[in-house]
Design a protein around this nucleic acid. Sequence first.
DNA 1: TTTACTGCAAATATTTTGCAATATC
DNA 2: GATATTGCAAAATATTTGCAGTAAA
Lengths: 163, 163
Amino acid sequence: MTEVNNTNAIVEMLERHLAAKGMRRTPERFKILEQVLCMPKEFVIEDLNKAMANNSFMVSQSTLYNTVDLFVDAGILRRIIIDDGPSHYVKEDGVNYIHLVCDECGKIKLLKDLNFMAYMNARKFPAFTTRDYNFTVYGICNDCARRIKREQREAKAAKKKNH
Amino acid sequence: MTEVNNTNAIVEMLERHLAAKGMRRTPERFKILEQVLCMPKEFVIEDLNKAMANNSFMVSQSTLYNTVDLFVDAGILRRIIIDDGPSHYVKEDGVNYIHLVCDECGKIKLLKDLNFMAYMNARKFPAFTTRDYNFTVYGICNDCARRIKREQREAKAAKKKNH
DNA sequence: TTTACTGCAAATATTTTGCAATATC
DNA sequence: GATATTGCAAAATATTTGCAGTAAA
């Protein structure tokens, strides 16, 4: 896992990967990377597609999927599969985040836990060689918890009024 | 999470859940449960479907999906989403297993780690109330590692022979 | 008798693939 | 000029849904 700090370093990562694999330097690949760098830390393909369209640089679905795969191979993105919806992509920064997924709003919070990472880096499993791991926690975020409580309070009040 | 030990206890779990929710005791539900009890600890819908067919008790896809969902609600099964393929289901036994997924053969090994469970039960996350968690480790199982090594050795030997 | 449940077929959502046209090397 | 890459449309995969008929309560 490489620590990635700035735009140039990431573009160079792509350049090196393309060179190493004998792949071509197409405008699509660099434009998509440019857009990825402007995205939030975690996003889905659809977000990326819309962002490309907003910046008047449409590419086909196949190119978008292929290119994002390429970025995963190049160590620029990390793919995480959290639920039965679309894959999520996290910009690689050397941190393997814990994913806090809210059952209510579906939002994903990324939690950096260096202790847990250190534990995992040291940890061995029987008859198995680790490449990567994914730790996802499901529950309710405080925003939704508050909203639900308020809604319950309001529903109760409305019921009382009707009697 | 309820500790589940035997067939009768699980059938009773279903009975109780149906009664509590005012749902009907259909033959499909009990037949599917019977089959689930004969499945390995971890399976996918397709496996279950085939097993039902082998035992000459076909149900429709919708019923199978609905019923497995029902079993998840009843605490009989746990759904885990591991890759971009189908959902996996694990028979609930009060243990939240670590999932070791082999990149090569796709097989999933369930690893019971009571220390990790205790750690997770105690662990709190900021602004978040935990309901469940899923810990998946990706890598290469020893069987595949050995196979790959052997194949590489054989490929080398074949190359040498051709020269 | 009421309506929850089943099964069928069609819809949905996400991703992959085959192939002709294009652009990089 | 050779072929990797793109874009389009269609296919593949997994699951959900609408609805008419059936059966549990």
